[in-house]
Nucleic acid binder design. Sequence first.
DNA 1: ACGGACATGTAAAGAGTTACATGATTGG
DNA 2: CCAATCATGTAACTCTTTACATGTCCGT
Lengths: 196, 196
Amino acid sequence: MSLRYALLGVLEARPMTGYELAQFFGQSAAWVWSAPHSNIYPELRRLEEEGLLVGTTDLRGEKLERRTYSLTDLGLTKLLKWAVTEPTPSYLRDPLLVKVGFLDLADPTEAAVMLRAFIGQQNDLIDGWEEHIAQLRELEAPLLKERLKHRPEAIHEAVAELKANAFQGLIDVARARSECAERALQILETMTNCGT
Amino acid sequence: MSLRYALLGVLEARPMTGYELAQFFGQSAAWVWSAPHSNIYPELRRLEEEGLLVGTTDLRGEKLERRTYSLTDLGLTKLLKWAVTEPTPSYLRDPLLVKVGFLDLADPTEAAVMLRAFIGQQNDLIDGWEEHIAQLRELEAPLLKERLKHRPEAIHEAVAELKANAFQGLIDVARARSECAERALQILETMTNCGT
DNA sequence: ACGGACATGTAAAGAGTTACATGATTGG
DNA sequence: CCAATCATGTAACTCTTTACATGTCCGT
């Protein structure tokens, strides 16, 4: 369900083609949700059928058709309704946390390699998100600029801050997981020291 | 894929029936992974077919059959192999972060209700996990006690600490999300103040 | 003319949720 | 004897991933 609303939310900034959206959602770091084009195209058609989007087809060159989707009033209404509904109590499932809980049984050297690889991955993600936050705060992020065109100037900074806050959430979650891996490394070290 | 390894990992402590496992994975707070019984029973049969588990059927009373599954050497090997394989670069998908990013468009009062409900949910989860961590540290958690029976005493505390660390990871992730919601509340407040 | 970006799809398989379905045992 | 717990399953549906598939346009 989140994909559909993520699409509506991005299209609130400006109309886009499926291809553009697929790029957006393909580079996972760029947005809070990710999806391959094979998800996006069918979902866009469904959203149009339901009247949450309207699409217009135009031509690039002679034959290559492309369809540009815009958010309708109904689409915006549905997006906002969703945004304020309480999340059903559920929690994030994290395969890493399953792994770290069983590492006492594994070879400590291999475990350390895995943990360090994970920490490296998370740090890379964090770096990307931090850059994006900086862009948002300077009101330089391309999509944000589009959004702000149809919003009163008085709230521009607050809107930017709200978007930045979402990415800060991603960063903090990544840090929490990374630090958990870090602590696991230390615990495994004490274990090998007293074991042998 | 994680479910299968979570099952193997729990069964490393002691043999269990599908019913017991379903209770374990049903009360989401109790374990790092959750699943309904309709997932667990078929998965157990598959794991047995593949030789990662062995099951024995016995009777409760006259007719009621139940099957108790134990981890095999092969099962343990596969679990450990999985535990040390590097996670494929991916990130957690968080519907809340999608929501908070669009709240500038929503009614601030409704948004605040949603955010406070979310924060409340996360705090409840955190309380449960904290209790469980305390139990683990005192070596009082039932499943941990079973596990430690077949491990050298020198590492008992370290094993407990490793399990506690996994739950600490859950808590820290929940805190990160909760604090993100908290910040969103504040930003929305500044927005309504300057907007009207 | 060719490679890379543009542009859009279908299909199959895997993972997860929800509902439906059945019956036995135990304790009050 | 009745309710709660014990015990195990199937089926339908949704969501996500991965692979397969096709063709156009633009710059060099």
